[in-house]
Design a protein around this nucleic acid. Structure first.
Lengths: 262, 262
DNA sequence: GCGATCAGCGGCACG
DNA sequence: CGTGCCGTTGATCGC
């Protein structure tokens, strides 16, 4: 395809904030937060109306080079179509040299809708807020998304013996960071409130190493199952996992507690 | 565009592992790890040779729905072109209902090159390994990327007084995570090696909260500047941050003044 | 395969 | 603006 013509199409599409696809044999350089070079090959350059800019190879989900909110320029120079994306903060630049352009496609995208997602951590946390008693009788919610100076506690509650309970919820397997996060919150809450405080990690699963760390810190893990669907995610059950030896000797077993009827 | 014809193009492109772009008015549903619905609107469906599948709106960098390594199927049904992406583990599915197709574009992508990135944390860590003396005289590198049971220590070194030094390198501003990570490594190394051990965090910047946490744990922060370019990133300088008041008074383990504010 | 971590993380919500 | 943190995180590397 004629590069001058291609450039004209590109300029018009950007002007109109259309979605723009340029396919061709190109060489890409980037410098800014890091730097990179991508030797010649055929790729897709995808440019969106808000200045999102991405170079896609025919593999992987993510673009190999990208920029958000870019100022985009085009020119024909030295027998190449040069597309460049620039941003000031942080100072970054991508340059795409097209030696040949196989296709330019532009579309005005009429789209007034946004995606609706179900099963986010926030939603699960909200579900738990409505009823904590099936984790433990007498456990009552006080505040969700409680903001502290350093971070936000998912759920703040009080147990049957008047102790403060800090709850961290994870929508997937809990790892180290979940435990350290809870530890941080515990330190803050204990210092601030100055009363006896328990820490609960609630997740569908926990890694062995994370569980080890958790138990060393005197925190507790509860497993929960949930199901995502339309229009909401629903908690199916919560059970205490891997009871400590002393707890195990004290109580026969930790039964699975279900909410509602089956 | 005729949906039956569009479907033929789609099937051929997928068969040949070409890059495929379908643009049209569609409605998208997803369920799997979470669930989502995207009401009707015009979007791009981008399918790559390795089964990467993404629905792109005309904004943002990331696809609003996506799947990697998907098995893709197409059919014309109820006056719609239905594209579906499925995966077994975890069990997921995306369904895209195209009410109208504005364009189908397919390209065989001849690309044998991979991106070369400069300025990654690994590279910076490697640069530091070649000479640690400008952090502190007598500091000598022992091992980089030292694997432990729970994680990998960036750099293991020894200082002029024979103490073990655990170094964590960050390519960008250090936050809580960096400190807790270093703390974990410290615990392991102390236990394993059983000798006096220091912990150093090296980053271009550190957040005040992270610095506070770091100092409470008796760890040290060094700031470093670097420049990325081709073909490598280069360390420009390292300097120790202003000593803490407690260090200045000579009581690193038992501070006289309480620093906590929460 | 799982585990741990990095990423030019991106994106969001709250201060 | 920065700060923290979630994400259907994805991608990489080591065991």
């Amino acid at each position: 395809m004629d590069l001058v013509h291609a450039r004209k199409l590109v300029a018009e599409a950007i002007q109109n904030q259309e979605m723009l696809m340029v396919i061709g044999d190109c060489y890409v350089e980037y410098w800014g937060r890091a730097a990179s070079k991508l030797p010649r090959g055929k790729r897709l350059c995808l440019i969106k109306g808000d200045g999102s800019f991405g170079i896609h190879q025919n593999k992987k989900l993510r673009p190999v080079n990208y920029m958000m909110g870019a100022a985009i320029a085009s020119e024909v120079k030295d027998g190449c179509l040069l597309l460049s994306a620039k941003k000031a903060k942080p100072k970054e630049e991508i340059r795409v040299h097209f030696y040949a352009v196989d296709g330019v496609h532009r579309y005005a995208m009429d789209d007034r809708e946004d995606v609706r997602l179900f099963g986010s951590e926030r939603e699960l946390s909200g579900q738990l807020m409505t009823d904590l008693s099936f984790i433990e009788p007498g456990l009552t919610p006080m505040k969700s998304e409680a903001p502290f100076r350093k971070g936000t506690v998912d759920i703040l509650a009080e147990d049957g013996r008047g102790r403060l309970v800090v709850i961290e919820v994870k929508r997937r397997k809990a790892e180290f960071d979940a435990v350290t996060q809870l530890e941080r919150y515990m330190k803050q809450v204990r210092k601030l409130k100055g009363r006896e405080t328990r820490g609960l990690l609630i997740a569908p699963e926990i890694s062995p190493h994370a569980l080890e760390l958790l138990e060393q810190s005197g925190l507790e893990f509860y497993q929960f199952d949930y199901e995502v669907g339309n229009p909401r995610a629903t908690i199916k059950g919560v059970r205490k996992k891997q009871p400590t030896l002393s707890e195990y000797l004290g109580t026969p077993s930790a039964p699975l507690l279900s909410r509602g009827k089956d």
